[in-house]
Write a protein that binds this DNA or RNA. Structure first.
Length: 548
DNA sequence: AATAAATGATTCC
DNA sequence: TGGAATCCCTTTAT
């Protein structure tokens, strides 16, 4: 092995193993340890006989004259740097550092393994006991107020099997998804690089990627309510683009960086965006706390920007109420979601301010009545705010759920199922992994927000990456998810039951324009690959697989 | 196969 | 107040 040849040139090295000895580890030591880590590599499991052991390595003949270098080699937790335990993957199961608060619920005293909120692998298990603030008379009250509430919850149809996919469709990770408002089989996808994809997932191979619409992250996309062919997109390049999907030709009704790059302190980015069709407005919000309005007819900014969140903070989400066009919901990095009356939009005039403990990744009105709000916060909690039953001082329910990653991944956003008449089903990707039959997978969770129950966790052994971006189809039982650079379409399993052995899922593996041609994992060339299953299974990641 | 980089909120000084 | 340091389950390319 390489280390041996390398050591030939080194002076005599003395490695000291003293896992049990009490000695504060200094930074310099750790640097050195890296150098000789191979000694322990072979077996991740602690070998107790190695403790307090001194190893001499090196060439005595050549090392003569030079002073031996002594290296202290201790088994140390990579998280807290303390000896006695180790955090990290053991096979497909992650072992937490016990010195840190729970990675899931953030409370001290236990790890995710023993967390009362831990999601188990069985469907429908209540993740945790949690307070129910609603008294019985409130339920009666709710029934009187909203007699349309179905008495019996409909049975949820969960799209839980990958039906088709485009692998490596985008050149960077997927950041936003949108279904076409009328054409049932068209999915729009935006990525971190600014590209926008249009995919006909019924005819799996029909796909287009437009690369010249934005220069960086596509944060949000909306169809023009009066013209199905046109989309608006908001990007971190500071522009809104209006693009004709047929031709790919676009123009920018708004550009907040007309003078180009003047440094990070002045560069404006657009995040939250929504369209108010009643008022003919595109609403966008930037990374400095401001809301901007663009008239959809003139395609020009209508008024001055309004400060709606803490000055200098990112406003990541905007949502217009589906029933009351005057109501606007915003959320952002100042740890608040805020409700506004569009008729009186001025700084500080929000009707309600919904407090969170961390950044609020998303806030959505419930899709049918618009009376409930679902928020996703980086404190690992989903919250439901019910304007009819509860007041807006505190959420009517908090659901602990793992989604707190804030770099490298697109932020997680829990979204309502637009088809659920009871307005309770929500979908959200999960960050933390679970050992599923020896593979560490990150499922996509379906949660009944009225009970906090995990209704379903969907996953596929071929998808080893996290799926932070998820969208439920407005009419069909279809889930679209963006995982890293790939797109997946899920349908209910029962619909594909006929083909149990012969898997008919369609996967298209495509390269990208700027990708270097080199040996490909998935074999073949950039052409489509229908018989994906066998190939994918051969190449699927082994890194977190354990022998069973 | 090992590693670095991309990248963003938060904390600390 | 602002810049630097820090941070637990990533993903990708080299």
């Amino acid at each position: 092995m390489a280390p041996i040849t390398r050591r030939m040139t080194f002076p005599k090295v003395v490695i000291e193993r003293d896992a049990d000895s009490e000695e504060s580890s200094s930074d310099e030591e750790e640097e050195e340890v890296e150098e000789e880590e191979e000694e322990e590599e072979e077996n991740g499991v602690a070998k107790s006989e190695d403790d307090a052991e001194k190893i001499e390595v090196g060439l005595n003949a050549k090392g003569k004259g030079k002073a031996p270098i002594t290296i202290s080699l201790k088994k140390v937790c990579k998280v807290c740097k303390k000896p006695g335990h180790e955090a990290g993957f053991k096979g497909a199961t992650y072992i937490d550092c016990p010195m840190k608060p729970c990675f899931l619920c953030k409370m001290p005293g236990h790890t995710t393994m023993t967390c009362p909120h831990r999601v188990t692998t069985e469907y429908g298990v209540v993740p945790a006991p949690r307070r129910n603030t609603r008294k019985p008379f409130e339920y009666v009250f709710e029934r009187q107020l909203r007699p349309s509430i179905p008495l019996i919850k409909p049975k949820y149809v969960i799209p839980d099997q990958v039906n088709c996919a485009v692998i490596r469709y985008h050149s960077r990770r997927v950041t936003s998804l949108e279904f076409h408002p009328t054409k049932n089989n068209i999915l729009l996808s935006g990525d971190k690089k600014g590209q926008v994809g249009v995919w006909d997932f019924e005819k799996v191979h029909e796909r287009v990627v437009y690369g010249n619409i934005h220069s960086c992250i596509v944060n949000n996309m909306r169809f023009n309510p009066t013209n199905d062919c046109m989309i608006y997109s908001a990007s971190s390049d500071g522009t809104i683009s209006c693009t004709d999907l047929e031709t790919g030709i676009s123009f920018s009704p708004m550009n907040l960086n007309p003078d180009g790059w003047q440094g990070p302190s002045s560069w404006k980015m657009l995040y939250g965006m929504d369209i108010n069709s009643e008022k003919g407005l595109v609403l966008v919000a930037d990374n400095f706390g401001f809301l901007h309005l663009v008239d959809t007819r003139s395609n020009h900014e209508t008024s001055n920007a309004i400060l709606i969140h803490k000055k200098g903070s990112k406003v990541v989400g905007l949502h217009c109420n589906p029933v009351q066009p005057d109501l606007l919901l915003s959320c952002g990095n100042d740890h608040f979601a805020r409700i506004w009356d569009m008729r009186r939009m001025e700084s500080g005039s929000s009707i309600y301010n919904l407090a969170h403990r961390r950044v609020v990744n998303s806030a959505y009105f419930s899709p049918i009545s618009g009376t409930k709000i679902l928020t996703t916060s980086q404190d690992n909690r989903l919250r439901i705010w019910d304007s009819i039953v509860g007041n807006m001082d505190s959420p009517s329910r908090e659901i602990v759920h793992s989604h707190d990653f804030n770099r490298h991944l697109t932020p997680f956003k829990a979204e309502w199922d637009p088809k659920d008449p009871s307005e309770s089903l929500a979908v959200v990707g999960r960050y933390i992994s679970e050992n599923y039959n020896g593979a560490a997978l990150h499922p996509i969770d379906f949660i009944d927000t009225s009970t906090g129950q995990l209704i379903a966790e969907v996953m596929d052994p071929n998808i080893t990456t996290i799926s932070p971006v998820n969208k439920l189809h407005p009419r069909d039982d279809i889930l679209a998810s963006g995982s890293s650079r790939s797109l997946f379409i899920w349908r209910p399993k029962e619909k594909s039951e006929v083909v149990e052995e012969k898997d008919e899922r369609k996967i298209v593996i495509c390269g990208r324009a700027d990708e270097k041609k080199r040996g490909r994992k998935y074999g073949g060339d950039d052409s489509d690959d229908e018989a994906f299953t066998s190939k994918l299974k051969k190449t699927k990641s082994k890194k977190r697989q354990v022998e069973i």
